[in-house]
């Protein structure tokens, strides 16, 4: 297991493709807490979020060969898999919520403070992203958050924000371009590593 510590995410995915469960375990240790944070943010309850986490890593185990390094980093791939499954759950729950039915779930566990303190690079990355998001104009930030965390279509976003559809598209493009400019130097420094 320790041999995985210095390996890049891509190397771990290659080992997973070769059916190495230790590599899956290492990738889980590296990213599960972040993915669970995202799933819990979208779904709102930890019980279902943990189910999503299971689904994502089973998907990685079965479909590691579908990862295409030319389309982005392993982390972006994992986050997108987590986001899409979380949004699916959110959408399937919406009719129940309209009918007044509420799922009851266990509490989210608190993040292990050691995780936060352990990685100064991670903290630096979080601070950079937080600042980059905060610097976005409010309408662009809201557009990106409604799309990413609430899974609204651009038509739904337009209706929610009482804005023409074309404006929503423009805001999404401009917002992502600004975020890209802020985070790109960091990513080029090699975020796909350990």
């Amino acid at each position: 297991m320790n041999s995985a510590l210095g390996e890049t995410d891509r190397a771990l995915v290659a080992r997973i493709e070769a059916r190495d469960p230790d590599a899956l375990s290492a990738l889980y240790d590296r990213h599960a807490a972040r993915l669970l944070g995202l799933a819990q943010r979208i779904i709102g309850t930890t019980g279902e979020a943990e189910e999503v986490l299971q689904e994502v890593f089973l998907f990685v185990w079965r479909s590691a060969s579908t990862f295409d390094a030319s389309r982005g980093s392993v982390l972006a791939w994992l986050l997108m898999a987590t986001r899409s499954r979380s949004i699916d759950r959110l959408r399937s729950r919406r009719p129940a919520a309209r009918a007044g039915l509420i799922g009851v779930d266990t509490l989210p566990d608190r993040a292990d403070p050691r995780d936060v303190e352990a990685d100064s690079v991670e903290r630096e990355w979080q601070a950079l992203c937080r600042a980059a998001i905060a610097e976005l104009p409010a309408d662009q930030r809201q557009t990106l958050e409604l799309a990413y965390f609430e899974g609204l279509t651009h038509q739904e976003i337009a209706a929610r924000m009482a804005t023409p559809l074309g404006t929503v598209k423009t805001r999404a493009r401009l917002g992502l371009m600004k975020l890209r400019e802020r985070v790109r130097p960091y990513l080029r420094g090699g975020s796909d590593g350990a």
Binding site: G37, D109, M177
Partner: peptide
């Protein structure tokens, strides 16, 4: 590619939750 990475940055400030 860049937009996917930028989208991932939206999730970065979220807290980690230890499973």
């Amino acid at each position: 590619i860049d937009f996917r990475e930028a989208s991932a940055a939206l999730a970065a400030p979220l807290g980690k939750i230890t499973p």
